[in-house]
């Protein structure tokens, strides 16, 4: 399986503005991420809040520019494209946003929202009404809602509109930025089922960003675990056992609904380091139960352990 999207050494720094008597502070939100996203598969990115997973999704789509590194889509380096060519390229790569409530212009009807992609890309539609009906039925929306405004829809319906808009230009790659995080649990399952069906029927490639591990295990092929902007482990199969102590802690923190199978949750001790001032060694060392002096001084590189499995740890567990 070839890679549709390849990230090479992708890095992004954010800096606080330097002011009067105030030094400029730099935070590395995404640090040297190299990753292949295989065509037609679902790659999950997990990690706690603020670990850089949403920034990674925006870097991949060049919604924000990278400080260094490159993104290659189908053998085209996005960094070399002119602004005009990049705008055309966006037909192929779309995004579903976390917050459906602010993802649709409150002054736009659903009809106008779903036809906006064609207006923006200047692709004339021979039959706009037919395409509108098709898009809406594709995501399970009643076509009668076309004249509604977003405030008249429920959260789940709005997210379906967001998905339909992302699909309008027939992209082959979607970044899903926690598409279910702001929805009710019952609606979450419907949206995931919808995304799953679309991926299968249209042969889409997903980058699925989430902090819900059980969801990622259910939904994804390959799983990428991030911590403080770095990739700490890549699991080629979602159900593979993680070996990085952080990935293990993350797996253990997943809440088991069945009380007979519930186990003691291992709570991590120690402080999360400041993203403005990361330690020289492993970023997780301060919280890691298996840390040694080596972990505090030397940063472990991401290395291949077995086929497709990569890990950045001096002392892989289990």
């Amino acid at each position: 399986m070839s890679a549709l999207v390849s990230l090479l050494g992708l890095t992004r720094d954010f800096s606080t503005g330097s002011g009067f008597l105030k030094a400029r502070r730099v935070m590395r939100a995404v640090d040297d991420v190299t990753l292949d996203i295989p065509r037609g598969s679902v790659t999950g990115v997990v990690g706690e809040s603020g670990c850089g997973k949403s920034t990674l999704g925006r870097l991949v789509l060049r919604l924000i520019s990278a400080s260094s590194g490159s993104v290659t889509y189908d053998d085209t380096d996005l960094g070399t494209l002119s602004p005009g060519a990049m705008r055309k390229m966006r037909r192929n790569m779309q995004m579903v946003f976390q917050d459906p409530y602010s993802a649709i212009d409150p002054r736009y009807t659903i009809r106008r929202t779903l036809l906006e992609p064609y207006q923006v890309q200047r692709t004339p539609l021979p039959d706009a009404e037919a395409r509108l009906q098709e898009l809406m039925s594709m995501v399970g929306l009643n076509p009668d809602l076309a004249a509604s405004y977003p405030h008249q829809l429920s959260g789940g319906q709005k997210q379906r509109v967001g998905i339909a808009r992302a699909l309008a230009l027939n992209p082959s790659f979607l970044v899903l930025d926690e598409p279910t995080a702001s929805l009710d649990v019952s609606i979450q399952a419907q949206i995931i089922a919808l995304l799953e069906g679309l991926q299968r029927d249209l042969g889409l490639t997903y980058l699925f960003i989430s902090h819900d591990l059980s969801l990622v295990r259910y939904f994804c092929d390959q799983v990428v675990v991030m911590y403080m902007g770095r990739v700490v482990e890549v699991l080629p199969k979602a159900r593979d056992t993680p070996h990085h102590p952080y990935a293990q802690a993350l797996t253990n923190s997943h809440f088991e609904p069945d009380p007979t199978r519930r186990k003691q949750v291992q709570i991590l001790k120690g402080e999360i380091p400041s993203p403005f001032n990361l330690p020289p060694g492993c970023a997780f060392a301060a919280r890691c139960p298996a840390a040694t002096p080596l972990c505090h001084s030397d940063r472990p590189a991401l290395e291949s352990a077995s086929s497709g499995h990569q890990i950045a740890c001096h002392h892989p567990q289990g």
Partner: peptide
């Protein structure tokens, strides 16, 4: 800062479209 502005940019919209079709009407 609204998400729909980011969504419009991601559709490939230029500055003119973003300002006159989304920001100013709102």
């Amino acid at each position: 800062q609204e998400t729909y502005i980011e969504a419009t940019v991601n559709l490939g919209a230029g500055h003119f479209h973003v300002i006159f079709r989304h920001l100013l009407p709102n």
